[in-house]
């Protein structure tokens, strides 16, 4: 099957995320489940439609991509197996890989450190916020 440019791009996101945005039926169970809902300017259920429309720029520039907690609630509950959290992760990857954008700079870290801050927090934040 021949594909439009947009479809080819979506195919790449599909491969990278392991999630098929076309399966989304806009039920909103992800958005209903999301603990970070209040922090997100683009809501979890919108990730699939933004990708399908090709509005990657907006996703990439959004605050939402960085506010996902990675808690897997949407991944667990999605009835269509779209698992929006994976699309959020893919968006972060695009920011980090293609644009070299990172949400956390090593220089920031010393200031953020506290006595009891666990290593797990630092490595997780680096993994989630940077390439």
């Amino acid at each position: 099957m021949s594909m439009t440019e947009l479809e080819k791009n979506i195919e790449l996101i599909k491969e990278m995320s392991g999630s098929d945005p076309y399966k989304c039926m806009r039920c909103g169970k992800c958005t209903a489940s999301c603990p970070a809902y209040s922090e997100m300017d683009i809501k979890p259920h919108q990730f699939a439609s933004y990708i399908i429309r090709g509005d990657m720029e907006e996703l990439v520039d959004s605050k939402a991509a960085w506010k996902c907690l990675g808690c897997f609630a949407c991944i667990e509950r999605c009835p269509r197996d779209v698992q929006p959290g994976k699309l959020v992760d893919a968006t972060r990857q695009i920011v980090a890989r293609q644009r070299g954008g990172d949400y956390l700079q090593p220089e920031e870290v010393p200031e953020l450190l506290t006595e009891d801050l666990p290593q797990q927090l630092l490595v997780s934040a680096f993994r989630r916020y940077r390439r």
Binding site: P35, K67, L69, C71, Y103, L112
Partner: peptide
């Protein structure tokens, strides 16, 4: 089984507190 805020407490400690 709801998230505590996880790693975001590094940069958004206030949000984690609401959780």
């Amino acid at each position: 089984n709801e998230c505590c805020g996880g790693y975001t407490s590094l940069k958004d400690p206030e949000f984690t507190k609401t959780r």
